[in-house]
Design a protein around this nucleic acid. Structure first.
Lengths: 215, 215
DNA sequence: TTCCTAATTATACGGTTGCATAATTACGGA
DNA sequence: TCCGTAATTATGCAACCGTATAATTAGGAA
């Protein structure tokens, strides 16, 4: 008897879950939440639709997992360059701001994805929890960078004031990131990071500069 | 023959359209785009579902109209106080910034609504057009206020630099507005406008202050 | 009053959705 | 080698979606 090629491959739960999550994110980024149907996701991940319910208790569960995955991914993408050792605190802050304002972080798909999730915050408590945690995580990293940069410059700052600086800087970055993604082509290349650096610098009282190399 | 009470009332096209638009916005704010089905909208507006297709060529058409309505509403809400005559340019700018960062502009429903529409920008060209126009309209008003305030303070600014200041200030306001709406309770009352004024002030190089009276 | 017309309702249809259930099948351990 | 079991597929269903069409009805014009 000739052994025919297997009709499917078994994979670990973790791998399958990630595959499904990535397919979900790709679909939402492309067509909005509306496009992420169970059948479309299964099709994109090249599995049957029944498999989704085998790994996730409901479609809502998958969406939530995709949200968490995406948010931590974006945070890591932005944070990574700021972890470089051997450079000044000011340089790390500059890298952090600039990285968050150029592709691939600034991207229509990313913004669309983020917006799709944002309007679920009202309804879903689990989503709200994830958002809150991600937001604070991101802001805390930013606050630490600001604190280091200010300390390095010999500027003392109270915790309360520091928190507000971080909130404000986070807001500029977010705002620029959104418009950059929502209106691609409305800004010249390199304009967004330049504006971001100048603004963040003005807010915290340091002169931050645009360093080339960010494509 | 006893005349029974009429089963429905005829109204002008404009009135009906607005009723339907408001019902749509209320539903989207409450349950997200997913909740704004034709039947739900008709139910909320207390009309039959067929009426929607009588006034709008499609559901998509209604959604688009609702988006335009909502955006101009928000812009007007924020802009109104800045039109006050007889006060300094700086005071008008302060009013503009502060108004946009307190209720009813800062509100979970408003943010949810805005986010719901945002993720349609990728797909729908008409939506993108409305977004672009609204964004530029808002930013232009902000830019004019900044120009006046700087001029009043005797600070000369090039058009190119002015544009970037407006982009940056717009971003701070947007970012703060979003988080204020997405995470109600995460900020103390009055904290958002205070941070917003300080940040905008730092960016453009003026000292803006929080004036009480904004509840 | 009578009639005409546009606003409104009533009803139905094809397609899609998320989910449940049962039948297959890969693949590691005995 | 064989077998158990969990991963995967196949199939079906009830509910809901947007839309089309025809039947009502309000309310002004003549």
């Amino acid at each position: 008897m000739i052994k025919s090629s297997p009709k499917f491959r078994r994979e670990s739960a973790a791998q399958r879950k990630e595959t499904l999550i990535l397919a979900t994110l790709a679909l939402i980024a492309q067509d909005g939440v509306r496009g992420a149907t169970v059948r479309a996701i299964a099709n994109r991940a090249e599995v049957s639709q029944g498999l989704i319910r085998h790994h996730f208790s409901s479609k809502e569960d998958l969406i939530t997992a995709a949200y968490a995955h995406h948010m931590s991914h974006m945070t890591n993408l932005t944070t990574a360059p700021a972890l470089t050792t051997g450079i000044s605190a000011k340089a790390r802050l500059e890298a952090f701001v600039a990285t968050g304002l150029v592709p691939p972080v600034v991207d229509p798909g990313m913004v669309s994805l983020w917006a799709s999730f944002l309007n679920k915050l009202r309804v879903d408590a689990k989503m709200r929890e994830i958002h809150e945690q991600t937001y604070h995580d991101f802001r805390d990293r930013l606050e630490a960078l600001i604190a280091d940069a200010l300390c390095e410059a010999g500027i003392a700052t109270e915790p309360r004031a520091l928190r507000r600086l971080a909130i404000a800087c986070n807001a500029v970055i977010d705002g620029l990131w959104i418009e950059g993604g929502a209106l691609p082509g409305a800004f010249e290349p390199g304009e967004l990071p330049e504006i971001g650096l100048k603004s963040v610098g003005a807010i915290i009282g340091l002169e931050l500069e645009y360093v080339g190399g960010w494509t």
